[in-house]
Amino acid sequence: MADTIVQVHDVSKSYHRDSIEIPVLQNITLDVPEGEFLALMGPSGSGKTTLLNLIAGIDRPNNGSINVAGTNIVQLGESALAQWRSRHVGFVFQFYNLMPVLTAFENVELPLLLTHLSKKERKEHVETALNVVGLADRIHHYPKQLSGGQEQRVAIARAIVTDPTIIVADEPTGDLDKKSADEILLLMERLNGEFKKTIVMVTHDPRAAERAHKTQHLEKGELIQ
């Protein structure tokens, strides 16, 4: 039995729009074992992206606790949480979110700028990550010179370059054609299978969810077993 790497316990989250409180998540409890490939599914507004954001430490719950890789991230201050994210989380977005003024190499290097690695070491790490995603030949290309699938692969290289504990992916294939989506899912399967990365992925796409080991459904802010 693998250790639990993500423990979400009794977490609720609501947003305020003007004076109206909009509940998004209600009393969510979820455990993710180390090495898991978990898909979170649900209709729009069900709270799956909010749950992903909470696990990734980019949003805070109203109550409950979230323990990731042995750290109760709810208790961390802003600066400590940023440092924690840089060490433990690799984030993959639906729309890639690469810096348009930076090359593939420079985009992947970004998280490493926060480490104490030398320039040479950073170069080695970046080249390794780009090799893993199969883009060693596009190293000096800018995002606008890449296809959507290639951009997403650069984003994945950026997510794995620091060797994070967990990879969170928010609709990673949502903006891609079927062929590119398959390539990305294959890559994620490889990251999970070959590199033992724990992955939590939000998706609308049942075919994408099929690639995960486990699928959890959310509806109206609650997990459905």
Binding site: E78, S79, A82, L110, P111, L114
Partner: peptide, 14 residues
């Protein structure tokens, strides 16, 4: 949006 992405990667407010 880019600054938000950088923060996601671990960049601090500073």
């Amino acid at each position: 949006r880019e600054y938000a992405v950088l923060k996601t990667l671990g960049f601090t407010s500073k």
